[in-house]
Design a protein around this nucleic acid. Structure first.
Lengths: 245, 245
DNA sequence: CGAATGATTGACGAATATCAAGCTGCGTGG
DNA sequence: CCACGCAGCTTGATATTCGTCAATCATTCG
């Protein structure tokens, strides 16, 4: 399309780009955590703040990987498509997550905003240069990659060997764990994504996801609240379900 | 067990440990590729060569991650177990592959020798120290992690969204691609692992793997040769099957 | 030669996908 | 303010793929 995509337009930031990172609310969760004030300033100099509306694309698989991102708020989904349209969501990103570790010259997956999303965008070349100068940043990135790999392996177990019920409960527990990691209450958890998204993340169909939620609700293992919130009343039982005891 | 595990005993190396890496046949494939002679020597100083017999464990999930490894020959399988014994193989490693990127304080998966395997073993602490001194090595490791993540995402698509036939053909093509990457003939490919291992890698059962091989054989898409070799006569057709056109 | 292990094939069943029909909630516009 | 319409969610009936259970075959190794 010929028009400028307003969703991707940089928003002027209230700090005049002097050091927007200083005010970043998710800095302690992100890769920036390891940088001191001076280095943060250097990162800020190559960063642009963006806001993306729900359902808007952030990047496309195969596209030249010109930018890397930090998610500062909202929920992002990463996915890959098969030629006939089958979709696998490979992950959801939230505030503090880094987007762009798994790429070569081009992006290995597509990314789309689930909710309204704010991002910190870095030109790849400049970011990579910064990596060579800031060894702590590179170490942090390696550690992030290592964590992502561990997560990816758990997801392979889920996709290859778990039943629908185990998949759903594992998913809910992982969302709960993420909350706990950020010192939030582990229940209720928020589900900003659709049933279809959950299905494509867990290797199921929307119908099976819906049915499984119904069963879990009926057996008292979860409670569905308003606003897409899910209450988890008994973690011990849920953990047993998730791991198939 | 109380006896010493002979399989894990270091073997004296013919170079008197002066610089065994200099003679390494897979160096150009491994993370060591980026090191010059001097740095290679430093790596060699902390390395121990090991030989592991088929079916012997190399490391166990949850175990304290005291060592990292380079596979120098043979085939290794990485896997995770569910409490009831269901198994997901998360990857196969071959000569040149690095074992131990995805770990924190403890190993995130178990590893077992499929064939006879030779390894280069590094004490983790010493290796991590070396990383801080050899930035090229750290960069190489980050790039290896990035590649592994891309692969992991492909595997998620396979596990979550592909049919049995698509899974098997994708697997064969990935083995073929690996050969091509190493300037070997893309066909035939070798299958050192059992049907059960293939099943646990692809999220199937041995029976389904066997039946699917039979179908592919009957339709002329593959030919099973002696010694676990599989000939791939028509890559274009196979690629279409793998991606579900 | 026989036992053991792995691979193949067959018959059957179960979990989940597919197809189809309502239901719910929410935004929009009359 | 309410009714309409749409999109997403739920539920039901049926189909299909793949798993389970079981028997046979092949290969290797004492």
């Amino acid at each position: 399309m010929a028009t400028i995509d307003l969703n991707k337009a940089p928003t002027p930031n209230p700090f005049g780009n002097l050091n927007p990172c200083a005010a970043c609310t998710v800095r302690d969760l992100s890769i920036c955590q390891v940088l001191d004030k001076k280095d943060l300033q250097r990162l800020a100099e190559i960063a642009t703040n963006l806001t993306i509306a729900p359902r808007e694309p952030i990047l496309d698989e195969g596209e030249d990987a010109a930018f890397l991102f930090n998610v500062t708020s909202g929920t992002v989904k990463l996915y890959k498509l098969l030629p006939d349209g089958r979709r696998q969501i490979t992950g959801f990103l939230y505030g503090g997550d880094f987007l762009g570790i798994a790429m070569n010259a081009s992006y290995a997956y597509s990314a789309e905003a689930v909710t309204e999303v704010t991002l910190c965008r870095f030109p790849r070349k400049k970011f990579e240069h910064l990596l060579t100068v800031l060894p702590t940043l590179e170490q942090r990135l390696l550690s992030a990659a290592s964590n992502e790999l561990v997560q990816a392996q758990d997801q392979m177990v889920l996709l290859g060997r778990k039943t629908a019920k185990e998949k759903i409960v594992s998913f809910l527990l992982s969302l709960s764990q993420r909350r706990a990691d950020r010192d939030e209450t582990p229940s209720p958890v928020d589900l900003p994504m659709s049933r279809a998204d959950i299905a494509d993340y867990l290797g199921l169909t929307t119908e099976t996801v819906s049915r499984t939620f119904s069963v879990l609700k009926r057996t008292g293992n979860i409670r569905l609240l308003d606003g897409g919130l899910v209450e988890l009343p008994d973690f011990d039982t849920l953990r047993e379900i998730a791991d198939g005891y």
